[in-house]
Simulated assay, not measured.
Amino acid sequence: MTTKPARRVVAALAAGASVVALGVPATAADRPITDVAAIAANLDLITGNDRVPGALAEVRDRRGRSVTIMSGTAESGTGRAMVDGDGRFRIASVTKPFTAVAVLRLVARHRIRLDEPVETYLPGVVRGTGEGSAIDGREITVRQLLQHTSGLPDYVRFPGSVDRDRPVEAAELVRIALDHRPEFAPGRGWAYSNTGYVLAGMVVERVTRQDIATAVTDLVIRPARLRDTYWPPAGERGIRGPHARNYTLDETDPAGPLVDVTEFEPSWAGASGAMVSTPSDLNRFWRELSGGGLLPGWALAQMRTTVPAPGLGPGVAYGLGLIRLPRSCGGHLWVHGGDLAGGGVANVSGHDDSGRAATVYITALTGGAAVARMRATLDLALCS
């Protein structure tokens, strides 16, 4: 165990380990911020039972203290220790809160209006074709893009339409969706749609006259003082700096060796899921967001205004890039999760109303059991 100047306690666990020595707290202020042993046990089940090479959880309290628990290895078949809370990984759909904050910062500057039609910012872009002929950007608002109430089909559901190994333009992803039947009329239902966030990114680009990577860096990453978070450009398939390898099952031999899918074309995910960050940076992002460092109070209230999200589970609701998740110990969490089917990583990250934040991620997609345990670990981290 080592303690760094920022009061992070790093507990490194090999798969199967069961004991973490954090010492006995001397004062109330030094009490453990979460149940490290219970979290470690969960992570060990993921790396031991669920065929996931590496798993990590980092919890940060409102005073800025954090604890990082790692299990397994950073690379399958090796003894290389799992990276710590400063190791980078693809955050997948946890990109969506960043895109939503960028939009809301522009709303606060009176450059975007949430209830304005998408047509205002992207004239002629959102026009359905073929089975999607009913789709019309004049009837879909910016708010509906961010809240998944637009009815837009999710381009991810049509994987044969995109070559995931080549750079792709956002407009091409949108066109794939526009050729398919809408889920419902705008505002008449809820259905998760990555297409809405790709369009929200295009709105940001049109308004700022910057590419989405530059805009989100200027509007969110720098103001939140995130040191290790970045938006990879199209064609950059690797991950910069320290990181674990990522894996998925071989579809032709699910019981066989895992397939390394660390190399991934980020433009395929775009404003819905392209970003790279670290657990430490994500927890800092939540602290800045909940503490008012990124949005004025009224804008944060808009972000937390939710509608039922039946596709995500009982009692779950969705705001603008935020999931309101019931907590097993009472109350709720503000979170987002994500996975990249072609990128072999899943994660869930968020905070509670007291200011505590947590991020959990796993380095392989091996089935529902590992993902369920990952989500349960976040709940445990912010309940204990």
Rank of each mutant, 00 (worst) to 15 (best):
residue 255 A to S: 14
residue 255 A to V: 11
residue 256 G to E: 14
residue 256 G to T: 11
residue 256 G to L: 15
residue 259 V to C: 08
residue 263 E to L: 12
residue 265 E to N: 09
residue 265 E to P: 03
residue 266 P to H: 04
residue 268 W to I: 13
residue 269 A to L: 07
residue 269 A to I: 02
residue 271 A to I: 06
residue 271 A to N: 03
residue 272 S to F: 03
residue 273 G to K: 00
residue 273 G to D: 01
residue 274 A to H: 04
residue 275 M to N: 06
residue 275 M to H: 05
residue 275 M to E: 04
residue 275 M to L: 12
residue 276 V to T: 04
residue 277 S to N: 04
residue 280 S to W: 03
residue 280 S to I: 03
residue 280 S to T: 11
residue 280 S to A: 12
residue 281 D to M: 06
residue 281 D to T: 07
residue 282 L to K: 02
residue 283 N to S: 09
residue 284 R to H: 08
residue 284 R to K: 10
residue 285 F to L: 09
residue 285 F to N: 01
residue 289 L to P: 02
residue 289 L to Q: 00
residue 289 L to V: 03
residue 291 G to P: 00
residue 292 G to N: 06
residue 293 G to D: 07
residue 293 G to V: 06
residue 294 L to K: 01
residue 294 L to G: 01
residue 296 P to Y: 04
residue 296 P to Q: 08
residue 298 W to M: 07
residue 299 A to M: 14
residue 299 A to L: 14
residue 300 L to F: 13
residue 300 L to I: 10
residue 301 A to S: 11
residue 301 A to N: 11
residue 302 Q to S: 14
residue 302 Q to R: 13
residue 303 M to L: 08
residue 304 R to S: 12
residue 304 R to V: 07
residue 305 T to P: 05
residue 305 T to Q: 13
residue 305 T to V: 10
residue 306 T to F: 09
residue 306 T to A: 13
residue 307 V to N: 05
residue 307 V to E: 00
residue 308 P to T: 11
residue 308 P to C: 12
residue 309 A to D: 04
residue 310 P to I: 14
residue 310 P to W: 15
residue 310 P to F: 15
residue 311 G to K: 06
residue 311 G to D: 14
residue 312 L to G: 04
residue 313 G to F: 15
residue 314 P to C: 09
residue 314 P to A: 13
residue 314 P to E: 06
residue 315 G to Q: 13
residue 316 V to N: 10
residue 316 V to G: 14
residue 317 A to W: 03
residue 319 G to L: 07
residue 320 L to E: 04
residue 321 G to Q: 02
residue 322 L to G: 00
residue 322 L to R: 02
residue 323 I to H: 02
residue 323 I to Y: 03
residue 324 R to Y: 09
residue 326 P to F: 13
residue 329 C to M: 08
residue 330 G to W: 15
residue 330 G to E: 15
residue 331 G to Q: 10
residue 331 G to T: 12
residue 332 H to W: 12
residue 332 H to D: 10
residue 332 H to C: 05
residue 333 L to E: 04
residue 335 V to K: 06
residue 336 H to V: 10
residue 338 G to A: 11
residue 338 G to E: 04
residue 339 D to C: 10
residue 339 D to H: 13
residue 340 L to A: 14
residue 340 L to N: 13
residue 342 G to Y: 15
residue 343 G to D: 03
residue 344 G to S: 12
residue 347 N to D: 08
residue 348 V to R: 05
residue 350 G to W: 01
residue 351 H to L: 09
residue 353 D to V: 12
residue 355 G to I: 11
residue 355 G to P: 01
residue 357 A to R: 04
residue 357 A to T: 08
residue 359 T to E: 09
residue 359 T to V: 11
residue 361 Y to L: 14
residue 363 T to E: 05
residue 364 A to W: 02
residue 364 A to R: 04
residue 365 L to A: 07
residue 365 L to V: 11
residue 365 L to G: 00
residue 365 L to F: 14
residue 369 A to G: 09
residue 369 A to V: 07
residue 370 A to N: 08
residue 370 A to M: 07
residue 370 A to T: 13
residue 371 V to I: 14
residue 371 V to A: 13
residue 372 A to M: 10
residue 373 R to M: 10
residue 375 R to T: 07
residue 377 T to H: 11
residue 377 T to V: 08
residue 378 L to P: 00
residue 378 L to Q: 01
residue 380 L to P: 00
residue 381 A to C: 12
residue 381 A to E: 09
